[in-house]
């Protein structure tokens, strides 16, 4: 393999990792609550603005803020769930779909407007970067590599949590079937609140990484949510491994397309891939058949 191709693959993997992390929380939220959370990107945005503030104001390293934001946003997530989502959870499925879209869409517009009123800047980005590493012609951005490792650790931790602890198992039980979980005595509401807050915290944590790599604005939430929903669907709704793989596939595909075919075609490939995969496997790559 040529150095170019290796360079591109490495770049694609590093990019895909970031997609994966953000999609991760979204996937849990959907799996447990059966709710398309359109406000997910807003929490990512808030997390990134918070870690920007911590970096510029207090000089805190974004890798540390990625951990710091977790408890803050777990609290926010519980609050959000109790206030807005819990009341609609027991509606029949079609009403739930409509209600959840209206509620989360409304919430994200609210967050967007209030944030952009108080956060008056054209764009936000931080000047944090680590010196690159070079191996025989292949340059690896060490910032991105570190982030990927961090994400990998987080994913493993999450997976362990879901497999080993009681709460984790309850979450998976709910993903598999709400009714069944209820029947064996899992406190659905409490576990849902927890799962939602974990999803929010992961989004905010992803936001801390996001601002290290890219620019952020208060209005980026909804487009990002939609992009990450695609990643989640690619991997299969409700599957954590799936969303990481979905992210990696998308990252590599976009990078290769941009290099060999032209950068203007790289967004097309995401949707073509999405549609092809869904047609072949309507429940996503790692989604459970229902």
């Amino acid at each position: 393999m040529s150095a170019d191709l290796i360079q591109l693959l490495v770049g694609g993997v590093l990019l895909g990792g970031i997609y994966g992390l953000a999609a991760f929380g979204l996937s849990i939220t959907f799996g447990v609550l059966n709710v398309l959370n359109l406000a997910h990107g807003e929490f990512l945005m808030l997390g990134s603005l918070l870690s920007y503030g911590l970096f510029v104001g207090l000089g805190i390293n974004p890798f540390i803020s990625a951990v710091l934001v977790i408890p803050v946003f777990m609290l926010l997530g519980v609050f959000f769930y109790l206030l807005l989502l819990k009341p609609i959870m027991d509606k029949p499925p079609h009403q739930l779909l409509v209600a959840s879209i209206l509620v989360t869409m409304g919430a994200s517009l609210f967050i967007e407007d209030v944030t952009s009123f108080f956060w008056e800047r054209p764009v936000t980005g931080i000047s944090y970067s680590l010196p690159p590493m070079e191996f025989s012609g292949v340059v690896i951005s060490s910032t991105r590599l570190l982030i990927l490792l961090f994400i990998f650790a987080l994913a493993c931790g999450m997976q362990l949590y879901l497999k080993k602890t009681f709460v984790g198992k309850s979450i998976r039980a709910i993903v598999q079937g709400r009714e069944g979980a209820k029947m064996v005595g899992i406190p659905i509401s409490r576990v849902s609140a927890l799962a939602f807050s974990i999803g929010m915290a992961l989004a905010a944590s992803a936001g801390a990484f996001y601002v290290t790599l890219f620019t952020v604005t208060p209005v980026m939430g909804i487009p990002l949510t939609i992009k990450y929903l695609c990643v989640v669907v690619l991997g299969g709704l409700g599957s954590i491994v799936g969303s990481v793989f979905g992210g990696l596939i998308l990252g590599i595909a976009e990078t290769l397309t941009a290099y060999y075919w032209g950068a203007e075609w790289s967004p097309t490939i995401a949707f073509i891939l999405l549609i092809i995969i869904l047609i072949i496997k309507p429940e996503g790559l790692f989604g459970a058949k229902k």
Binding site: V98, M105, F110, V114
Partner: peptide, 12 residues
Amino acid sequence: AMYGTVLVLLGR
């Protein structure tokens, strides 16, 4: 933000 609130209330 107010428009968002209207949507939230109606959905809720």
